[in-house]
């Protein structure tokens, strides 16, 4: 049975890498099958929406281009709690449900809630290193102000 502690570490390390804007470290935690989406339900149009949708290569390109963009000043910090880890019958893939809130701290040191939501992750446990295979970041917050170039 895969180690729950190691699975949690994949989730936490992925958040820390994004917080640090260490995108190489983040991609190093992802499998080449990586499939990422930000989803949101809109009560206004009564539809489930996709606000970002990338595979491994798409995510790598997106992250590599971020330094060239006019980016929001300050930092994002992800506060993640892993709630549930489920293992499939072959113990190859773990599905992980985590709650997150992300705060934004501006250059003057003022922090505000940016977004709240839930990660629905799949962690590939087949290799020596566990890797993030799939992430659905489902948002509760819909008004994100000026938004973000950096995925959640």
């Amino acid at each position: 049975m895969p180690s729950d502690q190691a699975i949690r570490e994949v989730v936490y390390r992925s958040s820390m890498a994004l917080d640090a804007e260490d995108f190489t470290a983040f991609m190093d935690l992802c499998s080449t099958e990586f499939d990422y989406r930000i989803t949101v339900y809109s009560p206004e149009i009564r539809k489930e929406m996709i606000w970002l949708d990338q595979d491994y290569e798409g995510m790598r390109a997106l992250l590599e281009m971020i330094p060239q963009h006019l980016k929001r000043l300050g930092t994002l910090k992800r506060h993640v709690s892993v709630y549930i880890i489920d293992h499939d019958a072959t113990a190859a893939i773990a599905t992980v449900t985590s709650s997150f809130i992300v705060t934004h701290t501006d250059p003057d040191g003022v922090s505000q809630l940016f977004v709240a939501g839930t990660y629905y992750d799949e962690v590939d446990c087949r290799g020596e290193r566990y890797l993030l295979k799939k992430r659905r970041a489902h948002l509760e917050t819909r008004d994100l102000g000026i938004g973000s170039h950096i995925p959640i």
Partner: peptide, 8 residues
């Protein structure tokens, strides 16, 4: 409409 977002 498939996308809607409101931002302040």
């Amino acid at each position: 409409v498939f996308h809607f977002h409101r931002a302040t």
